[in-house]
Amino acid sequence: MPLSEYEQRVLEQMERQLTSDDPRLANTLTARGRKPMSRYVLAGAGAVVGLLLLVAGAAASLAWLGVIGFVIMFAAVAFAFASPRQSGPAGVVRSDGRVTPPRKKRQGGLMGRLDERWQHRRDEGGR
């Protein structure tokens, strides 16, 4: 069941109020990038498999099997702690309630970062 016009207006008003009261909270609520739990489960399973291969390689005196087990364990832990790729940045909620799309990062080194900061200050009105 869709919302009535009145309910939509009230909801939009509540969103604007939240954004004006606490813009950081609004940005946090609209931001993406939480690591899904399945990522940790998969990494844990990989670490267990790698540990089993490492122990089996040591018990059977097969160094190559132990090395493969170690590499699998290392890859699983690296996978667990690496940041996942995001499908796309959510944007930034400004204090007036508008959502601005994120800017693409430039690869220009120091000058690019300084230019980006200058542009950000101009957009924010001197903050």
Rank of each mutant, 00 (worst) to 15 (best):
R117W: 11
I72F: 15
T30F: 05
K105E: 06
A63T: 05
L11Q: 05
E12T: 09
R32W: 13
L52F: 04
L18G: 10
G91K: 02
R16Q: 10
M37G: 13
K35L: 14
E124Y: 13
N27E: 02
I68Y: 09
A80R: 02
G50S: 10
A75V: 14
Y40E: 07
R127L: 13
D96R: 14
L54Q: 03
P89T: 14
L114V: 08
V77W: 02
L54N: 01
W118A: 14
V55F: 03
A60P: 03
S95H: 10
W64Q: 02
Q86H: 15
L53R: 00
T30H: 04
P23Q: 07
R117H: 09
M14N: 13
V71Y: 10
G50P: 06
A78G: 10
M1L: 07
F81M: 05
L3A: 11
R16H: 10
V48M: 11
R106L: 09
R9T: 01
R113L: 12
T30Y: 02
F79T: 08
S83A: 15
N27H: 01
A82K: 07
R117N: 12
I68T: 08
M14E: 08
R9D: 01
N27V: 03
P23C: 12
P2G: 12
H120S: 12
N27Q: 04
L62F: 04
H120M: 11
E124R: 15
D123Y: 06
F81A: 10
E12I: 06
A45P: 03
A78D: 03
G66D: 01
P101T: 08
Q13S: 14
G88W: 03
A56R: 01
G108M: 05
R113N: 11
G88E: 05
R32I: 15
G88F: 05
A56Y: 01
Q119A: 15
E124G: 15
P89I: 13
A75T: 15
P102H: 14
T100P: 02
S20I: 07
D115L: 12
L25Y: 01
A56M: 01
D21G: 11
R122S: 14
A59N: 09
R32H: 15
E7A: 09
R24N: 02
V55E: 00
L65G: 03
E12G: 15
V49P: 03
R106F: 08
T30M: 06
V55N: 03
R103P: 06
F74V: 15
K105A: 14
V99P: 00
R113D: 08
R113K: 11
A80W: 01
S83I: 12
F81G: 11
A47E: 07
M37I: 06
Q8W: 03
P23H: 09
V99Y: 00
G57H: 05
Q8D: 00
V77M: 08
G125I: 12
L53V: 02
N27R: 04
S87H: 14
V77G: 09
E124T: 15
G88V: 06
L3T: 04
V77A: 13
A56T: 01
M1K: 05
V99A: 00
L62G: 02
D115T: 09
D21I: 12
G125Y: 06
Q17R: 11
G33F: 14
W118S: 13
E7D: 02
G88R: 09
G50E: 04
S20C: 15
R106A: 14
P23Y: 05
P89A: 15
M73I: 05
Q119I: 10
D123W: 08
A75D: 13
G112A: 12
A82C: 12
L3R: 04
G66A: 11
K105C: 13
Q107I: 09
G108R: 04
